[in-house]
Design a protein around this nucleic acid. Structure first.
Length: 326
DNA sequence: CGAATTTGACCCGCGC
DNA sequence: GCGCGGGTCAAATTCG
């Protein structure tokens, strides 16, 4: 199956990167939102960026919003949502500043939350008990398995506790969107009140503990919610299908398409070359409104000066050319 | 044949 | 304590 550039994605993942022009990539600026920090429909600000139109800002959860982007080239509007998990979601900027330093325990009501992260003590107990309990061979085996599992879980949770999340809503027919990284699916769960399952992915890179969850909105089945957790510790191993796509067809520096999240997702090392000053300003405003620290490449430190130092999640969301000089 | 996915089981926290 | 929902594991299976 080939690309269906004008009709959006078809079905397979292969098409995930074909949502757009002949080169397959349109990076959608998910951040062309009004500078409002409250994400209500009433605060929609329409804006056009030539290739797309911001349709609206969608309330997503307390700590985030979504931009509805209409891509004229596509049969479907594309929704991109940028949000962050935060303590309460009330003060996004505050949350993100925390996140920046030490990502707060996520608490995103819409995307689910990392609710079981600070449970290491309990895990330790369980592990110890599990090790010493049984005489039966089978049970021993099972306990050993459990022990191993719990140890892993413990490790996982120790790390997870510090990892921030970043979620996007994307209008796509494809669930698992190509983002430049390689992922291994490690689980799938049915979502309550939703006919669509949630899939769990982990970055395949050995030392990288980034995870992502992908689920389809039951209220709008065309919307895919992708939640990233953690940050990549390595460059993207998978370049866009078209090497030039990311650079030539990605208008906004903050852009990401429904099919190419690379420049938005945490740990992104891909870069796009497109840069417009006003867009940067928009981005800055938007990021700021989201509470994202943003450092302009034109030496405009719009927000957090530590942005360039720290590897906060949002830092990675921006293309590298937004973080460095070009 | 190795890598990736599927899927049932398991664990945990939380609410009742 | 129990049930539920979210998250993870890992054996089995499928895929390339």
């Amino acid at each position: 199956m080939e690309k269906d550039n004008h009709m959006g994605v078809k079905s397979e993942e292969a098409d995930a990167v074909s949502f757009g022009s002949s080169n397959g990539y349109y990076n959608i600026n998910p951040l062309l939102l009004s500078s409002s920090s409250a994400f209500d429909f009433c605060q929609v600000e329409k804006s056009e960026l030539g290739f797309m139109e911001l349709l609206g800002v969608q309330d997503y959860c307390n700590s985030g919003g979504a931009a509805l982007l209409d891509l004229p080239h596509f049969s479907k509007p594309t929704v991109v949502k940028a949000s962050c998990d935060g303590d309460s979601g009330k003060e996004c900027s505050e949350v993100l500043n925390h996140q920046h330093q030490q990502p707060a325990t996520p608490n995103s009501s819409s995307i689910s939350l990392a609710s079981s992260e600070a449970v290491n003590d309990e895990h330790n107990k369980s592990v110890e008990q599990g090790v010493h309990d049984d005489d039966d061979d089978y049970q021993e085996e099972q306990q050993q398995k459990k022990t191993k599992k719990q140890l892993k879980v413990k490790k996982t949770k120790q790390k997870r506790q510090r990892e921030a999340r970043f979620a996007f809503m994307t209008k796509s027919e494809v669930d698992h969107l190509e983002d430049g990284y390689r992922w291994r699916k490690y689980g799938q769960k049915a979502v309550k009140n939703s006919p669509f399952p949630r899939s769990y992915y982990r970055c395949t890179s050995a030392s990288c503990n980034v995870k992502k969850r992908v689920e389809r909105s039951f209220t709008d089945p065309s919307v895919v919610v992708t939640t990233y957790e953690g940050q990549h510790t390595h460059p993207s191993p998978v370049m866009p299908r078209s090497p030039i796509a990311g650079s030539l067809l990605t208008p906004p520096p903050q852009g990401v398409s429904s099919t190419n999240f690379a420049s938005l997702m945490p740990g992104n090392y891909l870069s796009s070359q497109y840069h417009h000053h006003h867009q940067q300003q928009l981005l800055a405003n938007t990021l700021t409104s989201f509470g994202f620290p943003y450092k302009n490449t034109n030496n405009n430190n719009i927000n957090n000066a530590s942005f360039s130092q720290d590897n906060g999640l949002l830092q990675d969301i921006l293309p590298s050319n937004m973080l460095k000089e070009y």
